[in-house]
Each structure stands twice: as C-alpha cells, then as structure tokens.
Design a protein around this nucleic acid. Structure first.
Lengths: 214, 214
DNA sequence: GTTGCAAATTTTGGATACAAAGGATACAGT
DNA sequence: ACTGTATCCTTTGTATCCAAAATTTGCAAC
C-alpha cells in the first residue's frame, strides 16, 4: 500500500530551501556537502540529491567538482521573473474565475485578513502565496500552477525583505482587496488587468527597494 | 581552472531523456535503477541523480520506495502546456524583435530551410526548437528561455509523432515563414499575434492527431 | 616581492555494501 | 474456495569507502 514516508532527500531539501529563503544562506554562499550532512544528521548521499533538487528549482547552481552555490539573482533576473509572472498569472486567473467557488474566495479573503494582522516575513510570504494560489487553483492547470509557484519560490527571499515594509504592505493589501472584489464580481477582464498591474508594480517596488538597500 | 568534464549524472540523464523523447520509454514505463545502471555502465548512484533531474524537468514522476515512472501526459495537460507556451513565447518574441540581428534571422531561416529537406523526427524537432530559440534569444531572458525550452521538452515526445505528417509540416513551415517575415519587418504586434496563433493551432493539431491515433 | 610549479589537502564524484520498505507468494484458518 | 497473515524476494534508500578533481599551500627561481 501507499505510505507517505517522506524520504531524506526531500526533508533535507526542504530544510536547505527554507534556509536559503530565510536569508541564512545568502546568494553566493558555497554549500559543503559534508557540513550539511553533519548538521542535518544524514550522510552526504541524501544531501547530494537534495542539492540537485534545489538546483532544478533554480535556487542553487551546481558546479561540477566545485560544489553548490546559492544562486544570486541580479535585478535584471528579478525583473525577468516578474515579467513571466505577469504573463502567466493573469492566464491562470482568467481560466479560474468562471470556476471560482465560495471556498476559494473565502480562503483568499482569510489569507488577506491574517496578512493584515501578522508581521513575520515567513508567514506573510506564505499568506501571499495562499491568496494567489487560492484564486488560481480552480483553473485546474497543475503545470501552470507549479510553474507559477516556482517563480514565487525564486523571488521569495527578496519578497520577505520588502514584506516587512509597512508602506509596501498597505499598497499590496489594497491591490489584493480590489483584485478579490473583481473576482467576486466575475469581471474577468478587470481582474486580470488588476492582477497584471499588481504584479508589475510589486516587481518595480521590489527592485526599487533592493536598489536603495545597497 | 575550469574544466567542462560532463559528469555522469548529466550523461545518464541525457541518455534517458532521449529515450523517453524518442518513445522508447513510453508514458507509464517503470524505470529500474539497477537495470539502467547496468545498461549505461555506471552504478546506481549517478542514475538516481539523473532520475531526480528528469523528474524536475517533468519527464518522470518519482514515487518514494516504488520507483520512477515515465510521466503520462493527458490531452488536457498537453493543451495546458500549449496555453503556457502561447502566453510565454509571444512575450519572449516581443522583447527580442527590437534586438534581432542578421545572425539570428539567418539562423532561423537556415533551420527552416533544413526542416523542409529533412525527414527524421529527432532532427525535425531539433530544428523546430532552433528556429524558435533563435528568435527568442536576443531577448536576453535566460529564465524565460529555459522555461520555454522545458515546455518544448515536455511535448517533444508527441511533437515527434506529428512532425512526420506531411500535412502538418507544410502548414507549420508556412506559418514559420510568415512569422520570420514579420520579425524581419520588425512588426512586433503582427509577429506576436502570428506566433500565438501558430502555437495554439499547432497544439490543436497535435491534440486532434493524438485523438485520432487512439 | 612576485611568479610559477608541485605536493598536500580538501572536497566532490562514483561504487560497493548494507538497511528498510514494498510487493508477491505461500500457507493457515475459516 | 476465500481471506487474512506471515514470510520471502525484489527494489529502493542510505551509509561508508575509494577515486578523481580542484584548490590551497609551500617552495624555489627569478
């Protein structure tokens, strides 16, 4: 029979991933297999598979015989990801709106409500994804959804930094509320326009924020 | 210093990938590590990493403790991939057209010329990708390009089947020529409209073809 | 002091060996 | 005959060990 039985490479991958996203391993960090293995209480073998997994997700770059380096995202690449999101997410939303039920709308609203109360970066990032994913899921496009998720994953490290800036959060919340209303009203065109604009503007704010931070 | 030194997992991944795309391992096939290892003259370890790589590419599904299964693409998923391509490729083309040089236009044209003479499925698939990639590359959006490449990879198995059907090829070549002309003339809007239409229609033809084949 | 080379060290890549999980099979009980 | 269960076999998962590659260090020559 089936059993979930999370296998070590997956557990290890999850832990390393979270460390990268939390900023504990900034871009450029060299990850040593032995070190990770010892720290996570496994041998190097599962670590190697985890590293390959994370490399496939775009969080690492594997240099043969030289090790795994945490991927650095240039501002250009960051903007690129937002361009891709701006192309894909409105597509998902368009397909989803006709099938949106009370359940998803409620889930999205709950995420927004909590996001206004909470202040932890990791949690805010989770809620942000939950909001978006709830709206896209009814489209029933698994590949599209997981591609979008991967893009989110890749900007998440930087997202978390700006998610604690109050000005950004207020603007973002406002846009989210407007988007949700458009979805409720089944106004496909307006919703997808709002979403595209929301993504592009969030991208611009993030790039701006990172530029100033240096 | 640097050395290319293709590492075994990559070699192994490439070979398995080619077998999947060529139809030698159809969807649903269970891949046994030991068997692959023996056949490719390595131990199970590089095979495992290769399998993980291919799973990340979407060609396999890894079931913990139960093995790797070649991914089956339902017609719905196939259409989904074409929807994604129709969203992403016109974006890449728009960004690329202003920067298209003689080099890329020539490369694209060469690919079309050869595609009209050649009849081998694998080669045709290569040429088809070369044509598209040549037009997108000047956009200088590496993630966008590799995402598109991944989508191509995932439909390639089915593409190869229809690429030997003369009627499809003629239609496709015609559309490619029109697209190339629009690019030469720097008509961004027309070119991106042609491309989107080309992708959606190719997807429809493929779905139709596969439906009839059953 | 700087540059070039070579040995030594570190670190990754790959193979073998062992453990554990899943599935198949045979047997016992009803 | 059928069902449930225990055991065996196959296959995957993980650890350990050895080999190969890359980096670092030390030494020598200029």
């Amino acid at each position: 029979m089936f059993r979930a039985s999370l296998t070590s490479p997956e557990r290890v991958a999850r832990q390393i991933r979270e460390r990268i996203l939390a900023g504990r391993y900034p871009g450029g960090t060299i990850l040593r297999q032995e070190e990770l293995a010892a720290e996570l209480g496994v041998s190097r073998m599962p670590v190697r598979e985890a590293l390959r997994q994370l490399a496939a997700e775009g969080l690492l770059i594997l240099h043969p015989h030289r090790g795994a380096v945490v991927a650095e995202l240039s501002l250009a690449e960051l903007e690129e990801i937002y361009e891709m999101r701006a192309a894909l997410e409105p597509l998902a939303l368009r397909l989803a709106i006709p099938r949106l039920g009370k359940g998803q709308l409620g889930e999205a609203e709950d995420a927004l409500d909590e996001a206004e109360r909470v202040h932890d970066g990791q949690r805010l990032s989770q809620l942000n994804w939950r909001f978006h994913a709830a709206l896209y899921r009814p489209a029933e496009r698994p590949r599209l959804l997981s591609t979008i998720e991967l893009l989110h994953l890749n900007v998440d490290r930087y997202m978390r930094m700006i998610l604690t800036v109050m000005q950004h959060r207020e603007q973002s919340n406002l846009e989210h509320r407007l988007l949700l209303e458009a979805c409720r009203a089944r106004e496909v065109e307006r919703a997808s326009r709002l979403l595209q604009q929301h993504i592009l503007e969030a991208g611009q704010r993030l790039v701006q924020f990172l530029k100033e931070k240096v």
